[in-house]
Amino acid sequence: MTDVKDLLILLISSSLVSNVVLSQFLGLCPFLGVSKKVKTASGMGLAVIFVITLASAVAGLIYKFLLVPLGIEYLQTIVFILVIAALVQFVEMFLKKNSPALYQALGVYLPLITTNCAVLGVALTNVQKEYGILKGIVNGFATAVGFTIAIIILAGIREKTAYNDVPESFKGMPMVLLTAGLMAIAFCGFSGLL
């Protein structure tokens, strides 16, 4: 039973306490770029959950069954980035062919994810912290959920504040960054959770 407890703690800590965007600054580009509307933000969030979970599974498998037996762990960065890029392409093609409905929901966001550093970040964290495959997948999933929560909240706030009267210099990106900063303060509160 301790395993399940461990996984639950990991789930909470990866998604809320050390939120991937607000405390680790990974995946900042889509976080700031695709958060104008709640609808697109949730689409991006779903795509990220999908890809990160899959990528952490695949990267974990490759690390354990290919890199470690061959003694070439030092190639992890190169291998992971290529695997992720190929995986995203492959997922895109697969979805287009077999599940047009899902492709319609995620399609536009999939190619953007290749450059999302959160994906590579999660794969590397899994290896660095020696999570193994199951824990790695849970960590990947939780991280992506954390990303989704953050981006949807930010999109909600941006929708509300879109027409506020702010000084001209602060219009656009600076306001978004300030909002993100305030959200980061709020998320600091979660650190008392564990």
Binding site: L22, M173, P174, L177, G181, L182, A184, C188
Partner: peptide, 12 residues
Amino acid sequence: APGAFFVLAALT
């Protein structure tokens, strides 16, 4: 973490 956002906001 929040400070980073604030500094970057000021910069932009």
